[in-house]
Amino acid sequence: MNFLLSQISHICNRKILLLRKEEIMNQELIKNNIVFRLISKEEFAHIEKQAEQEPRSRFPYQKWNDLYLIYKSMIPNPLNGYVVTLLITDIIMKELGLSNTELFEFAQKNTPKRTGVVLCGLDEISKDINVPAVIPTDTDVWHFPMEKQSPILLSNHNGLNASALILCDSVMDKIIKHYNTSVLYILPSSVHETIIYPDSANILISKFKNKIHDANRNPSLVPSGDRLSDHIYKYTCATKTFEML
């Protein structure tokens, strides 16, 4: 536990978001705030390079199509309302008594609980904002469009790092129920949100891919640090599987 303490203390001091050590060392506090995030290969390479400089900072991850899945704990600071974001390393995972599979399964269930879910019809959202301006922290927003074939935008309460919500069965099951379709198409508009279309005869994969490609190269639309992928993903509802297109 000594390394765990020193690692967390270092992160807290660096971020100037200090918590009492007894709060940070509470394993249940760390575990209960674990979420996963989808990141680009470029961001993954940056994190991996930092970890190579300190062997004890090796971290669990999963390759997911052209992206990577990593784990973090969003530890709340009751003193000022801020959050200390802690990368889950191999050592922390071991201290928590979790295997790689258990870590994924826990994060899959916990992420929507910890970050919340905000879903809105894409056509109903202002071009200047991604999510409604005011959202109670304990309330999810499931604002499906009236038109069944209209796309939706999926994000979370603070509109940050929400793309991994597509990997949460509890979220996708509600989307499937609304559309009553066998296939969904997911556009990774950024690390912060995804756009989801139900299958229809009007779906043009090449058009979608061109739009994503162009948006990712326009910093006014998608800042370089927010880029996720140039691909779109086909989600087969019956098997809950993804195919990169």
Rank of each mutant, 00 (worst) to 15 (best):
F44V: 07
W64A: 05
K31C: 08
K31S: 09
E22K: 08
E42G: 01
Q62N: 08
I30A: 00
L98Y: 12
K21F: 02
P78I: 12
D66G: 10
N65M: 14
T101C: 03
I39W: 06
K72F: 13
E105F: 07
P60L: 10
I30N: 01
L79C: 05
L87F: 01
I70L: 02
E23I: 12
Q27V: 05
K41S: 11
N32L: 09
L69H: 06
W64V: 15
E43A: 02
K94M: 06
K72M: 10
L29I: 13
I30K: 04
S73Q: 04
L17T: 07
P78A: 05
R37Q: 15
S99L: 03
I91N: 01
V35G: 03
R37A: 09
I39C: 08
Q53R: 11
N33I: 06
N33Y: 05
N32P: 00
Y61A: 02
E48W: 08
F104Q: 07
M25G: 08
K21Y: 03
I92R: 02
N80G: 06
L79Q: 15
M93N: 01
K63T: 01
E48P: 00
M74V: 12
L103P: 05
N65K: 14
Q62C: 06
E52T: 07
K94Q: 14
T89S: 06
L69S: 01
P78C: 07
P76F: 10
L17H: 11
Y82W: 04
Y82D: 15
L29H: 11
L96Y: 06
I70S: 01
W64E: 08
R58A: 05
E48F: 08
L29V: 12
I47L: 12
K72Y: 14
I34V: 12
R58H: 09
Y68K: 04
L103R: 02
S73N: 04
S57H: 15
V35E: 07
D90M: 09
I39Q: 03
N100S: 15
L19V: 10
E54D: 15
R37Y: 12
D66C: 07
E48K: 13
T85I: 14
G97E: 07
G97P: 05
D66E: 04
L29R: 15
P60E: 11
E105Y: 07
P55N: 03
V84P: 00
R37M: 13
Q50H: 04
A45S: 10
S40I: 04
L86N: 03
Y61V: 06
L98F: 13
M25K: 08
Y68S: 00
N65R: 10
V84K: 02
N26V: 06
L96T: 11
P55E: 08
Q50E: 14
I47W: 02
T89P: 02
L87Q: 10
E43Q: 14
K72Q: 11
P60Y: 09
L79H: 14
S99D: 04
F36V: 00
F36C: 11
